[in-house]
Computed example of a mutant assay.
Amino acid sequence: MIACFDIGGSAIKGAIAYSPGDIRPLPKVATPLHDFDLFASSIERIAADGGADPASLISISIAGVVDSDTGKITCANIPCIHGRQLVRNLNKKLQRPVLVANDADCFALSEAVVGAGRGHRVVFGVILGTGVGGGLVINGKIHEGAGGFAGEWGHGPVSATLAGNPPVAIPRYACGCGQVGCVDAVGAARGMERLHHHIHGISLPSTEIIAAWDAGDQAATRTIDVYIDMVSGPLAMTVNIVGASIVPVGGGLANSTALIRRLDEAVRARILRQTNKPLVIPAELKIEPGLIGAGVLGLMEKAK
């Protein structure tokens, strides 16, 4: 068994992983944001409370990116670890082996090993929620990429300036990553809301837009048509590049199976590989996929 964690800006969630199918959550604690020693000791205490061996491996899924060349993590929402060589620092502080992986990568790994991607060689896990992200798993292993970046299809100036039928002009919105015209700026939940306001001059949360669309509202239907047009093109291009045979989708927008079904139809109409089988599908693991992915990652490392 190993101790595994899913760490974000608000909470540290821990679990004890006995096997990929047997991962038992532990009580979560608030994430210490400004004190690295307290951050490390919180991890150590949760592992000890779960009964993990003091020398055993710790595996962490985190809302940040670790540069595979320098070991430094980019994690602005947890200032005490931002810019640190996190694995090295935790190894020294905890006196035990530590693995750290991006949370979207862990989501993709969990889907590839115990979720919707079982049996598929290339799995591209997509996040559609407060942000647009992704992770790539090939032959059961996370593909990290240069600088720790891979699967980040939500960033880069590729969003369309005309979308929908009939076409509507879409501004190239600024993105939080510092670029302009990213899919993240129109494809995330806030992006859907931005599109609805741009087209109709009305501000609604994404949940209400989707509910109105489900009920047949014409304005919401127009927004969803534009949204699908804008998101499906970059996703289809990504599928063509990575060769994924399955694309599980997590995040808040994936709670709408109808939305993911529409996205799947649009993506399959735009990719080179012709298939009648669903490609873009809701993720199977609705509860703590990052934690499960961290557990799977650690167990795989332990088994080497």
Rank of each mutant, 00 (worst) to 15 (best):
T275W: 08
V183C: 10
G140D: 04
K304P: 05
V29K: 12
P20Q: 08
P278R: 06
V249D: 00
T130M: 12
P157N: 13
A63R: 07
C175N: 10
K13Y: 07
A17W: 03
F124N: 01
N255E: 14
M300C: 09
L38S: 15
V226C: 03
G64L: 02
H196P: 04
I271C: 06
K141P: 03
T74V: 14
N89C: 14
L272G: 08
G178W: 09
G164H: 02
G8I: 06
A236E: 02
R262C: 12
G290C: 08
F39Y: 13
L259N: 01
P205D: 15
G251L: 10
A185W: 08
S10L: 08
T130P: 07
G295T: 02
Y227Q: 00
D37N: 14
I224T: 01
V296M: 07
A40R: 02
G187K: 01
A104C: 15
G252E: 05
I241F: 13
G125I: 04
L297V: 10
Y173N: 11
I292Q: 09
F36L: 10
C4K: 01
L259Q: 00
V98T: 07
L259D: 00
E265D: 15
P171Y: 11
C80G: 11
A112P: 05
E208C: 06
A150R: 02
L136T: 03
G243T: 08
G251D: 11
A212L: 14
D35C: 11
I281T: 03
I281C: 03
L279A: 03
G83K: 09
G9A: 10
I209C: 00
A294I: 02
V65M: 13
K277S: 14
R45Y: 09
P157R: 10
H143D: 06
G83W: 06
L94K: 04
R261P: 00
M1T: 12
I260D: 00
P171H: 11
A15F: 04
V65Y: 03
P27N: 11
R84F: 07
R121A: 14
G290P: 03
G148I: 02
D184N: 15
A30R: 14
V158G: 12
L33A: 15
G250L: 05
S256P: 01
V98D: 02
D37K: 13
A219M: 13
V122W: 02
G148C: 10
I260P: 00
N102P: 05
D67F: 09
A47C: 10
C177S: 12
G201F: 08
L26F: 06
P289I: 09
G14F: 02
G147M: 10
G125Q: 05
R96D: 12
L253M: 15
I138Y: 11
E284D: 14
C106G: 08
A188G: 15
T238A: 15
A266T: 09
C182G: 11
L204C: 08
I292H: 11
L235N: 01
A63I: 09
M300H: 13
